[in-house]
C-alpha cells in the first residue's frame, strides 16, 4: 500500500446535485444482472428447474387432450412458463434478498446516499430479464420439441404482455416480502422453495385441475400462480384449449383482477415488513 503525498482530488464543488433515483436504479439493475449471471450455480438453479421438468414431462406424457388437438406437452409449456415467471420473481428474490441481508449488502447500502427505491428498481430489472429469458427458452423448447404454435394474433401478445408484467411484478413483490421470513440465508432456500413447490402442484402446473379435489382448487385460486398459468394457456393454447378449463373459459377478466390484487397486496406487504437489517443486527 503506497502512501501518496498528494491528496486525492475532489472532482467538483461541494453542491453538485444528488444522482437521480432512476439513474441509480438502472445502474443497480445492470449490477444485479452482472452479479447474477456470474454466479453460475444460481443461474443453473434458476433456469434448469422448469426446463428439466418440461423435457421430462414432455417425454413421459406424449398423448393429446381429448377433442382439442392440444398435446400434454403443449399444456406443460404454458404452465411451466407461469411457474418459471413466478420462480424468477418469488424464489429468486426471496432467497437473494435474504442473502443480501445476511452478507451485509443491505446494511452497507443503507449507509450510503443510495435512495432505497434504487435497490428495488434494480431487483425488478433483474427479475424481468431472468423471467423473459426463461420464457424464451421454454417457448423455444415448446416450439422445436413439442410443436407448440406461437400465436399470430396481436391480441394474444397483448394478453401475454399484461399477464407477464402483472405476474412478474406481483411475484417479485411477494419475493421481497417473503425474504424477511427466513431466519438466515442458509435456511432461505428451504423456507422459500417449499411453499413455491406446493403452489406449483396445486396450481395446475403439473396436474390438471380436473384431477384435483375442489378444496385444493379453492386454495390454489387464492394465489396468483393459478391465474398466471391460466393467462398463459389462453395465449399459447388458443380457443380450442378453453374447453380444458374448469369453467370452459380462460376468465381473463378474473386473471387481471386477481393478479392486480396481488400486486397491490405485495406492495403493501413489502412496505410494512421489509427489514434493512438482519435479525442478529437487532
Amino acid at each position: 500500500m503506497t502512501r501518496t503525498a498528494t491528496a486525492v482530488t475532489r472532482t467538483a464543488a461541494a453542491d453538485r446535485p444528488m444522482p437521480s433515483v432512476l439513474r441509480l436504479g438502472l445502474a443497480r439493475g445492470a449490477l444485479e444482472n452482472k452479479m447474477f449471471f456470474r454466479e453460475k450455480d444460481a443461474v443453473i438453479f434458476t433456469f434448469s428447474f422448469p426446463i428439466i421438468l418440461l423435457v421430462l414431462f414432455g417425454s413421459i406424457f406424449s398423448g393429446s387432450m381429448e377433442g382439442t388437438g392440444i398435446t400434454v406437452s403443449q399444456l406443460y409449456t404454458a404452465g411451466l412458463i407461469g411457474a418459471g415467471v413466478m420462480g424468477a420473481g418469488f424464489q429468486n428474490l426471496g432467497i437473494g434478498i435474504a442473502g443480501d441481508r445476511e452478507d451485509g449488502t443491505l446494511k452497507r447500502l443503507a449507509g450510503t446516499p443510495m435512495p432505497r427505491a434504487a435497490y428495488f428498481i434494480g431487483k425488478v430489472i433483474n427479475v424481468l430479464v431472468i423471467a423473459l429469458l426463461e420464457t424464451v427458452i421454454l417457448l423455444a423448447i415448446g416450439v422445436f420439441l413439442y410443436d407448440l404454435d406461437l400465436p399470430s394474433k396481436a391480441s394474444s401478445w397483448v394478453t401475454f404482455s399484461w399477464v407477464f408484467l402483472l405476474g412478474v411484478s406481483g411475484a417479485a413483490l411477494l419475493g421481497v416480502a417473503a425474504s424477511s421470513l427466513p431466519r438466515s440465508a442458509k435456511s432461505a432456500a428451504a423456507v422459500i422453495s417449499m411453499p413455491f413447490v406446493v403452489l406449483q402442484f396445486i396450481s395446475g402446473v403439473f396436474i390438471p385441475f380436473t384431477q384435483m379435489p375442489e378444496w385444493l382448487i379453492n386454495i390454489a385460486s387464492i394465489f396468483p400462480l393459478k391465474w398466471m398459468c391460466q393467462g398463459f394457456r389462453s395465449v399459447f393454447l388458443g380457443d380450442a384449449g378453453a374447453a380444458l378449463e374448469l369453467t370452459k373459459s380462460y376468465e381473463l377478466d378474473r386473471v387481471a383482477l386477481i393478479l392486480a390484487a396481488w400486486l397491490i397486496g405485495g406492495l403493501v406487504l413489502c412496505l410494512t415488513t421489509f427489514r434493512w437489517k438482519g435479525r442478529r443486527d437487532g
Binding site: V8, A27, L31, G104, R108, T112
Partner: peptide
C-alpha cells in the same frame, strides 16, 4: 466501514468501487 461484509463477491474491485462512486454527488476518482 462496517465490521462484517461479504457482499458483491462476484464483482471486480474496480466495478464495485466505480458503482459506489455513482451514489455520491462529489466522488473521488
Amino acid at each position: 466501514v462496517l465490521q462484517t461484509a461479504n457482499d458483491a463477491a462476484e464483482l471486480t474491485v474496480r466495478e464495485t468501487v466505480r458503482h459506489f462512486a455513482g451514489y455520491y454527488p462529489n466522488p473521488h476518482d
